[in-house]
Design a protein around this nucleic acid. Structure first.
Lengths: 214, 214
DNA sequence: AATGTTGTTGATCATTTGATCTATAACTGA
DNA sequence: TCAGTTATAGATCAAATGATCAACAACATT
């Protein structure tokens, strides 16, 4: 009756679970990657047992690498948020040797790769709803490092009498971000080319302030 | 040691809780209202005990009015989603006796009262992330009953060569909705006047397609 | 091959949580 | 005033869930 210990010589059933021993760094990263995908899908209230099953490890192992579930979620935040807004963009936006329109399109071409990503978009929304401090900081960073310089550049380039406000810029930004929200939060079928939509949106915005668009 | 049953004659402590008896209809509505506010704040994974405490009733009473927690959430959806998009708007948008710009501004003036509402915005987002069918239906309704007629009207009114696409319209829409997202999802401090931002956004959009804006 | 280290598992604990059940008390009508 | 009805509270159940711990086995070293 006791099927413990290595007496399985006759039944011949191979050990159900190949117990693979990973280097702690690799295992930790594997858990984080799995957790990002998992929590992005079901939300931060996802259960540790479900996560473990999805990764293919035991639930108890999670707690060998992260003291608490909150600590794991913190690691998820870190993985998702870290190095997302390159500080280089602040400078590139202000580089007047390049046409303003090109600078904006270059930024959003780069940035859209981020916001149109399933895991990012959903974890950003989940953490935002949960009131995570990180969201506020991220948006503040977006405001200070991207939109504010951008506002200044557009004001300088505006040749008409109309000049944009910061609220106008958030409107431009929001319209673009909303593409990702429709895709990944609301899961609406999306067939169009996001880059084209972005380009048209930017063009409309600039022409409203008489920034040459062609 | 047995402090059960009516042997509390000496301690004389008045009944802690005035047990108020409400008409079932009233109680049910009270629960729904409380649930809307509660789930909007903490998410649909909020615990029934916390909800009961917030309402000021016992947790068991919740299950006298709703068989399961899911049934309660369904009632919350119903309360929040029902009668949100007046079918009248489909006609008002197509009423060419009124300048197009006025029609659009009238719609968003009305609609923004909805999307800038805390409970609505957050429950819509929570349910969207949870994959609720109702979201899909709502957005589809928005597409068919509002944006599609709107697209047609703008195309007719466009006097230039440029003509908007449906994607352009979603961009306009998204930029406006994003105001509510910033306010209620990300809880960013918001001081500006939303109506002004909306008006400027609509004006930019229309002028891009040579629809007289003044 | 024997041994030591440690990454991993399975069982288990203590709470939490959705849901149920019985006793109670607030309101109604005679 | 008193009995009947039922809305409500409090205790409790069973499953779920975050977290712990001793035992095991995979890999490295000798």
């Amino acid at each position: 009756m006791n099927m413990n210990k290595k007496n399985s010589a006759d039944a011949g059933q191979s050990p159900k679970t190949l117990r693979r021993r990973l280097h702690p760094d690799d295992r930790r990263q594997q858990i984080i990657d799995g957790a990002v995908a998992f929590f992005a899908e079901v939300g931060l209230d996802g259960k540790t047992r479900d996560l473990a099953k999805k990764i293919g490890i035991t639930q108890s192992l999670l707690f060998k690498y992260f003291a608490t579930k909150d600590a794991l979620i913190e690691a998820v935040y870190e993985q998702v948020y870290l190095n997302r807004l390159s500080p280089e963009w602040t400078h590139r936006i202000a580089d007047r040797s390049i046409p303003l329109r090109d600078r904006i399109l270059a930024f959003y071409s780069d940035y859209s790769r981020l916001i149109f990503e399933y895991n990012w978009m959903r974890i950003f929304m989940f953490s935002g709803l949960a009131g995570a401090e990180l969201n506020r900081r991220y948006l503040d960073h977006m405001h200070q490092m991207i939109l504010r310089p951008l506002l200044e550049e557009i004001r300088v380039a505006a040749s008409g009498s109309a000049v944009p406000t910061m609220e106008d810029l958030w409107n431009l930004h929001g319209g673009i971000v909303y593409i990702g929200i429709r895709q990944h939060i609301y899961r609406m079928p999306y067939t169009a080319d996001p880059n084209e939509a972005i380009e048209r949106s930017v063009n409309r915005f600039l022409s409203a302030f008489s920034v040459e668009t062609a």
